[in-house]
Amino acid sequence: MKSKYIIIALLALSSLAFGASESVVWSDNLIDNILGYDKKGSLHLGQYFTILQSTYFKPLFLGVLFGVPAVFLLHYMVIGPMIFSHDRKKIYVFTLFHRVIHAIAGVSFILLIPTGLIMMFASTFGGGEFVRVCKEIHAISTLLFIVSIVPMFFMWLRWMFIHLDDIKWLMIVGGYLNKDKKPVPAGRFNAGQKTWYWLATLGGFIMIGTGAAMYFQDIRLDILASNHISQIDFLRASAIVHNALGLAVVALFFTHVYMAVFAIKGAIHSMIDGHKEEEEVEILHSSYYRELKEKGEV
């Protein structure tokens, strides 16, 4: 009895192996891939990918890479950081679980973003073994990202839906344009944090999917064939989406780091020991503070 199941399992596995050996890119599908390049009815993605990659992506990434920090440097020099009293009570906002998951995500971003940028500017680094190693690190650190992003999505989801406060927050750009300590309309998370959350989780899932498609390349997806999308067109779409989303991720990651490390003095400690300064919560998360007050927790 047992051997029968082993044989069935082996057959199933071998059919997988044979299925994988038939290339989706170069075998009989090559004709679909070629015809799909720029013919009527195709997505014209070959042309778009070539134009975007050859002329637009590099300057755009360069712009984000230097433009975003430049804007923040200007903000730091002209308006300066927010400094809150560290003498009042501290409010416990992030549990150990939140902090561990956030730390894993943080490590994965610190690995993913520089290695991704090195691949984008591979010619500057001379290509070759160094960039190839970065490419593998980019792929391996995705595993860390996957591990952190799934719990992160669920653990903060209930606070991340849009609220009237968010529109008000956006109208005053979160109160970062002046140093007045006026209460800023925001719940537990402000509109900026919510944007970052949705980009990092939903955007993150898309980044993982498109990245995996490009990394493994020759994976057969029946949904593509049934929709008459050729494999190379799918890869082109993946590259375009991955790079475009990557721009946003890099920009918001820089923003996130600037806010935590420079713009709000001591804010980073909330992700280390879980506590925020009471005044910081009172000003920057005024709706949440009011809620806590009503509950008598502060």
């Binding site: 890119v25 170069w26 070629i34 070959g46 070759g128 490009m214 390349q217 190379i232 890869l235």
Partner: peptide, 23 residues
């Protein structure tokens, strides 16, 4: 092309109208 510089990203395959690059 120079194989010592190539990192195997396959962007050339996405750009190629003929599916020529092999990996």
């Amino acid at each position: 092309h120079d194989k010592e510089k190539c990192i195997g990203c396959a962007y050339c395959l996405y750009a190629c109208p003929f599916g020529a690059p092999q990996f």
